[in-house]
């Protein structure tokens, strides 16, 4: 969309004159004349199809802008930087703790087998049967471990996609991050709800001895 050459020359002259007369405010009639000339020159270049396309593009731009804003409001950076890493760490901890627990159960079952070997026939058979049942039941850990590993892999895939989305959104996400930061400042004290996020991962937890020392420090 451009102004026609004749119209733009006339308009440019008038604008130049207006700048020179800046000390003197333009009259209502002079302002109306300039505006009318701009509108007339524009309409001369636009077909109804141009106007329709322009309207559609304008609507589309508005829709995209609103969508970007709404996605940024969801704070996708928190999903990628906080929720998914937390979820994968928690799942890794599940695998590790069940593996440790299974190891201890197997220790006991092996001790049971040793004791069984020292017993009379009927008793030996019963103890062996119990130990075998424990061994059989313990192979759940391999299957659950593999299932959890698959979930972790899926979460990491989602994280990659979210990182790509954040890259596209850029500015909106930064704005939303700043707003989230401002909201989070509060009075600096954790609410009751904030305190409920256990069980902690091993690296974030303190053990019973540390808890006892901490409690004692209040005395």
């Amino acid at each position: 969309m451009t102004l026609s050459h004749g119209a733009s020359t006339g308009l440019a002259d008038k604008l130049e004159q207006a700048r020179e007369d800046a000390e003197r405010p333009l009259s209502r009639e002079e302002v109306a004349e300039i505006i009318t000339e701009v509108v007339m020159s524009m309409s001369g270049d636009l077909t109804p199809l141009d106007l329709k396309v322009y309207k559609e593009l304008n609507g589309l731009a508005g829709f995209i802008q609103a969508a970007r804003h709404e996605i940024a409001e969801i704070r996708p950076q928190e999903i990628g930087s906080e929720y998914i890493p937390t979820a994968t760490d928690e799942l890794d901890a599940v695998v590790m703790s069940t593996e440790e627990a299974t190891g201890r159960i197997l220790d006991s079952a092996e001790q049971l087998m040793t004791i069984a070997g020292e017993q009379e026939d009927a008793f030996q058979e019963k103890l062996t049967e119990i130990a075998m049942a424990i061994f059989e039941a313990s192979n759940f850990q391999d299957v659950t471990g593999q299932r959890i590993t698959k979930v972790v892999r899926t979460l990491k895939h989602i994280e990659t996609k979210i990182d790509a989305l954040i890259g596209v959104l850029g500015e909106e996400v930064e704005r939303s991050k700043a707003e989230a930061h401002a909201e989070g400042e509060g009075n600096g004290k954790a609410s009751d709800q904030d305190l409920l996020n256990g069980p902690q991962l091993p690296q974030n937890a303190i053990d019973q001895d540390e808890i006892d020392r901490l409690l004692a420090s209040f005395d």
Partner: peptide
Amino acid sequence: VDDYKTMLRIIRNLLKQ
């Protein structure tokens, strides 16, 4: 042959039995 040590231990014990 298994990459889970726990599973090796379980199979070993079952085979022993």
